[in-house]
Nucleic acid binder design. Sequence first.
DNA 1: GTCCAGATTT
DNA 2: AAATCTGGAC
Length: 467
Amino acid sequence: MPAKRKPQAGSSTASKRKLGDKSSDFEESDSQASSYEPSPKKKAKKSKFRQKSSPDAFESPSAVQHTEKSKISHSASIHLIHSPLEVQTALLQWYAGVHASRGMPWRKPYNPLLGPDERAQRAYEVWVSEIMLQQTQVATVIPYYTRWMEKFPTIRDLAAATVDEVNALWKGLGYYSRASRLLAGAQKAVAKYQGRLPDNAKDMEANIPGIGRYSAGAICSIAYGEHVPVLDGNVHRLMSRFLAVHAPPKSKATLDILWGAAAAMVKPKKHIKVSSAQRASSPESTLESTRYPGDINQALIELGRLLAGLYEFPTSSDVAKTTSRTAQAKIPHALLTQLVVPSILPYDAKRKETESQHECIQITSIKPVGDVIHVFSHIRKTYRTQWVIIRGGETPPKLKIGGFEGSTVPELSFTDGGGEDGLSASPRPLDAMWVPFNKVSSANMGTGVVKVWNSTKELWERDIDGS
DNA sequence: GTCCAGATTT
DNA sequence: AAATCTGGAC
């Protein structure tokens, strides 16, 4: 998914990261389970998976370095969404608060009462926006979109236009072949479909030039309410992290997993029969009726896109390469100041009987995990990771984020590595950034997995036990 | 992202 | 020979 709906410029490191980048590989061999290999590549393109010879400092105790292309030995089921409803709820709740924030003129609330013609008009609008968004970021597209709709309010207006008129409006967007396909698509829709874009993704993709799997899914879910998935670069990034996928990002196996996950998100729920009277009185059913596939897809895209407001684990920047192992072990204690915590006991201090578990937190263990290299554009960053166990407190400590201390923790937490990420929004609990320990890699180091809030307690307790 | 041409598989 | 996959171009 190269050129596409670009993430907000300069927002964060993640926008430049290659998902599944294998610049370094640490995967704890995880004995059991099936062996899942992302698409059997023909010849051994070993060079592509450059190995990292663990430099200086220390060796990672649990990391295993592979000399061959690593195979992932775990059940493929970890890459499935196990409670789509739960995730959907959190996602839509998040989206409800941001969907209108960027003033996208093509984004309108889904109206299930619309008739065929009105839906087709919506499809036209979404279509134009989607094609423009494939190559340009939202802020830039808006004025182009507005001008376009003024000149060609309906698909019939577009169909009647000349290439020159279209190109004139497209000027500055580049990729003119898209503009000409837009025109060709409109003409075909008028000539063969009574001026209405096909109302289902399959037909749309098969018959309208310039519309592929992604666009068909986006347009049909948003305009027609069809339960079809979308997977663009943003959703790819989101789902990769959510499911802790660490594999060649473009391989068929990886794509299959991600499309499957995207499909699970919009899978229609066999709704329980509710009378309109019940619906009116039950907030539950009201929410249920609000779960339109188009909203889910847009929410996924939106969450995967800017990427600002992402969080990383507490990090100390610019640590000298020569820092000794002993000196490094002292860093985590200083990092506690980045957390919202009750009083802190020194690492080595013996806990006095009088000191309540709840009033004090204390680091009880610090272990080097190994180095993780994060490469994005021209920057190459080494994370010297340490596994720190913190004991005490009633709940997982939250990250102190400038000015937002104490605000509400959203149900969805999404984090990213990279020190230059804009840290905004509300503080996240540390455990919301939890990443399966055996999956620490360049692809997800410092990257939190989106977690549904009500599942974090369990994770927290499990981590404390060190199991 | 989509399209297309060449390679591969059934 | 049709269906599917893959890598590069726009």
